[in-house]
Simulated scan of single mutants.
Amino acid sequence: MRLASLLFCASLALSAPAALAQTTPAPATSAAAPAWTASLATALQQAKATNKPVLAVFSGSDWCKPCIMLKQEVFDKPEFAQFAKDRLVLARFDFPRSKKNKLSPEAVKQNEEAAAKLNKEGSFPLVVLLSPEGKVLAKTGYRPGGVAAYDAYLESLLAKK
């Protein structure tokens, strides 16, 4: 009797994921994930072509707690994608420390070149707003309050340009 019960439970457990996959709808997204470039030169070219400012983000994705929080609470949200879509050119420069997250030599070089121009202090996270011509409009970092508060803050910084 125990063996039959065990086999029955095991068969239910094995069939449950397939049944759930058939009945669970895919989550709807309100905006596609924004495209982030890893090249400051490319970001500035796009900014000039579209007359949009650049949002350059310097992060330590696997060691900097505020960097991780900023990404999770703001940049990974569909509301940010919607906000940034017609307003910003996005560039991310990451400085991971873990061997498993090691960047290619080319990516390290690009990130270090961007940091030499915009993040000489080595601040993390650092968010830099640049004009399409490359002029620094504002520097900021992590701010609590989530995506709506951050988008409003960025909007206020852009209004000052």
Rank of each mutant, 00 (worst) to 15 (best):
L12G: 06
A38C: 02
L70D: 02
K71E: 15
K117P: 00
T29I: 12
E73F: 04
R92E: 12
A56Q: 13
M69A: 14
K52A: 09
V89Y: 04
F80I: 05
D94K: 03
D62K: 11
A81V: 06
Q46F: 01
Q82T: 15
A21I: 08
A56K: 02
L90D: 05
E73N: 12
K52H: 14
A47P: 08
D76T: 01
A116C: 04
D62G: 11
A28V: 15
A43R: 04
E73T: 10
Q72M: 15
K71V: 02
K77V: 03
A115F: 01
N101K: 12
P66F: 10
C64Y: 04
E113W: 00
A107R: 01
K48L: 05
K99V: 09
K99W: 01
T29H: 11
P105E: 11
M69L: 15
R92L: 06
A13W: 10
K109M: 11
F75D: 03
A43N: 04
W36A: 01
A26Q: 15
F95P: 12
D86T: 13
S15P: 03
P78N: 12
T24W: 05
L14A: 15
K52T: 10
L70I: 02
P25G: 09
F83N: 08
A19S: 14
P17A: 10
D94L: 01
A91H: 07
F95Q: 10
Q82R: 14
K109S: 15
D94N: 13
K109E: 10
P17Q: 08
D94G: 00
A10N: 03
A35G: 07
S30V: 10
R97Y: 05
P105M: 10
S15C: 14
A10I: 13
A81W: 08
K65T: 15
F58N: 08
A116D: 09
D76K: 12
S11M: 14
L90Q: 08
A114F: 02
A32K: 14
A41V: 14
W36Q: 06
Q45V: 09
R87S: 10
F75N: 00
N51Q: 14
L70P: 07
A28P: 00
P66A: 11
S59I: 05
D86K: 06
Q82F: 09
P34L: 09
N111F: 00
S104W: 07
R97P: 00
K77S: 05
A26I: 04
D76C: 00
K77N: 08
K65G: 03
L12R: 10
D76P: 02
F80E: 13
K102N: 04
S61W: 06
T23L: 14
A47V: 05
W36I: 02
K99L: 10
T24A: 13
